[in-house]
Design a protein around this nucleic acid. Structure first.
Length: 107
DNA sequence: CTCTTGACGCCGG
DNA sequence: TCCGGCGCCAAGA
């Protein structure tokens, strides 16, 4: 099954795995996810989220400026409020406080 | 191979 | 803060 090189499914699994690992109240930018899994780029991550993000906490993956994806602003805001994600007066996520460092919060 | 299109990112004005 | 421009990565026509 392995074509040798990275299959698209592996990339998809890597992205979804990283997203599931984000603790509640924290977020990652699309580019952060790409760096975390050392694969692809922000555009590619967005592509995966668009097609396979329904089963993971998609609201924890946002733009680098703290805003949610187009069409999902309202739903995302609801989730952010529900799990206590640090928000700015502008309605965007406070990236400075909410950005996940990538390490288990248990420590 | 070239052009266009995305749940993107950074810089300038 | 709002826009426009350019770069980046992958897929489709």
């Amino acid at each position: 099954m392995s074509g040798g090189l990275l299959s698209s499914e592996e990339f998809i699994e890597a992205v979804l795995g990283a997203v599931e690992a984000i603790p509640p109240g924290k977020v990652l930018a699309y580019g952060d996810v790409a760096e975390l899994i050392c694969m692809g780029g922000p555009r590619s991550v967005g592509k995966v989220m668009s097609g396979h993000g329904a089963g993971v906490p998609w609201w924890r993956v946002i733009r680098a400026d703290g805003s949610a994806a187009s069409g999902l602003e309202v739903r995302a805001r609801r989730e952010w409020l529900a799990e206590g994600t640090p928000l700015r007066p502008t309605g965007k996520v406070d990236m400075r406080r909410a950005r996940w460092d990538g390490r288990p919060h248990n420590g």
